[in-house]
């Protein structure tokens, strides 16, 4: 079972650390066997809650890399 994650790299999200989210997912991906497909996107239309992430069809606003990994773990369960 794979998950598709879109991480916004638009300027508002970049300033709020979206590059850290991408790194965190890549690290996590190396550790587990499940395939996570990461895609950098230009905007998820949630600039106020930056950084924005889309997992499957739902948009989230994980403040820290750890919050995103928790979200992914929940999805994998």
């Amino acid at each position: 079972m794979g998950i598709k994650i879109k991480i916004c790299i638009g300027t508002p999200c970049h300033l709020m650390g979206s590059q850290n989210l991408i790194e965190a997912v890549q690290e996590f991906n190396k550790k587990i066997e499940t395939d996570i497909e990461v895609e950098a996107v230009n905007c998820l239309d949630k600039c106020k809650g930056a950084p924005a992430v889309k997992i499957d069809d739902e948009v989230y606003a994980p403040a820290r890399p750890k919050d995103l990994i928790d979200l992914i773990k929940e999805q994998l369960r």
Partner: peptide, 17 residues
């Protein structure tokens, strides 16, 4: 760079677009 980035955000400019 941090101030410039904040100005982009304040002006509604997304460099990725």
């Amino acid at each position: 760079f941090e101030e410039l980035g904040s100005m982009f955000v304040g002006a509604g400019i997304n460099l990725a677009n």
